[in-house]
């Protein structure tokens, strides 16, 4: 502890701590400085010793402690690399703590992680995430709370940062901690882009037509909101009634007639589906009522 404090008090004059040097390096602007107290608590490092080689030397390097046994010259780059990985993994744990979240919130406020490239997100700030908690699988990705999607960092300088240095839980934790981000998102436009050819929208039936509308859709009408409620714990099965509705929506009556005349197999199948809907009981019925509305 005392060693660290000495270093810190000196830092403004000559010696900078390893942590602040690391965080100010080119391309490391997503990182926050982990409090040394957090690293010194061995409990916070549980399990990391098996992931990182030269664990002891690496943690000493991070804390600017002189190693008891000098590191062999051949091992110096290895230890340096191990220290970076270790720091990243500690960082992933640290940003889930109260202090870490606050430090990240400051960076978020300053738009350090960039804005969402999606036009209709209107420059929503992004959050760094990893899709895996194990190092070495994937580099860092950016999560947009508005469109609930993940994006690649705009610059290649972030492509050597491991996603595990931010972890899978950070974005969720951050949004729970700062619910105002959610309200901010609600205020944003729910508008979607519709591709047009000389002013006419392309139907989903057309090849190259709009078949991904659902991806950015928000429930807006009464029916949709009710459907949305049904999705609370699972995706409700499409009932036969809904299928019929889909048919009438399409307006392709001719095709339908042909089909129902056509294969007896399909009729049999629809009977089966009726049964399924029947056994489902209330769920199926209320589905029907939506359709009737």
């Amino acid at each position: 502890m005392s060693t660290y404090n000495n270093v810190q008090s000196d830092s403004s004059e000559e010696v900078e701590s390893w942590i602040s040097i690391f965080c100010s390096m080119f391309g490391h602007d997503y990182f926050v400085e982990v409090a040394p107290e957090f690293i010194e608590d061995n409990f916070n490092l549980t399990g990391l010793s098996s992931l990182v080689p030269f664990f002891r030397d690496a943690s000493d390097t991070i804390l600017d402690l002189e190693p008891e046994v000098p590191i062999k010259a051949a091992n110096v780059p290895l230890v340096e690399h191990a220290a970076e990985v270790l720091y990243g993994l500690i960082h992933a744990r640290y940003i889930l703590t109260k202090h870490g979240l606050r430090a990240m919130a400051e960076k978020y406020q300053d738009n350090c992680f960039g804005s969402c490239p999606r036009y209709y997100c209107q420059g929503m700030h992004l959050l760094p995430i990893g899709r895996y908690d194990q190092p070495g699988i994937e580099t860092v990705r950016l999560y947009c709370p508005n469109c609930n999607d993940i994006y690649l960092p705009p610059s290649s300088r972030y492509l050597n940062i491991d996603g595990a240095f931010f972890g899978t839980s950070f974005a969720g934790m951050f949004l729970k901690m700062y619910p105002e981000i959610g309200t901010q998102c609600e205020k944003r436009t729910k508008q979607q882009f519709q591709l047009k050819l000389f002013g006419f929208s392309l139907n989903e039936r057309a090849p190259g037509g709009s078949r991904m509308k659902w991806l950015r859709q928000h429930p807006q009408t009464k029916e949709e909101l009710e459907e949305y409620k049904k999705c609370e714990f699972g995706i409700p099965k499409l009932t036969d009634e809904e299928d019929k509705k889909a048919k009438s929506d399409s307006g392709d009556e001719m095709l339908d007639v042909e089909k129902s005349k056509g294969s007896p197999g399909s009729q049999k199948d629809s009977g089966k589906e009726d049964e399924v809907a029947g056994t489902k009981g209330s769920g199926g019925e209320s589905m029907m009522s939506i359709v009737k509305d």
Binding site: N148, G172, L175, K176, E204, R205, R211, K213, W214, L215, Q217, H218, P219, E224, E227, Y228, C231, E232, G234, I235, P236, L238, E242, D243, A246, K247, D249, S250, D252, L255, D256, K259
Partner: peptide, 27 residues
């Protein structure tokens, strides 16, 4: 996360509805 997962499920439902529409039209 619950609310996000719910939205994802609803979107998946919408996707399925669209697929079934396309099915019905024989596309």
């Amino acid at each position: 996360m619950h609310s996000e997962a719910q939205m994802t499920r609803w979107r998946a439902l919408k996707c399925e509805q669209m697929l079934s529409r396309l099915d019905k039209m024989g596309i």
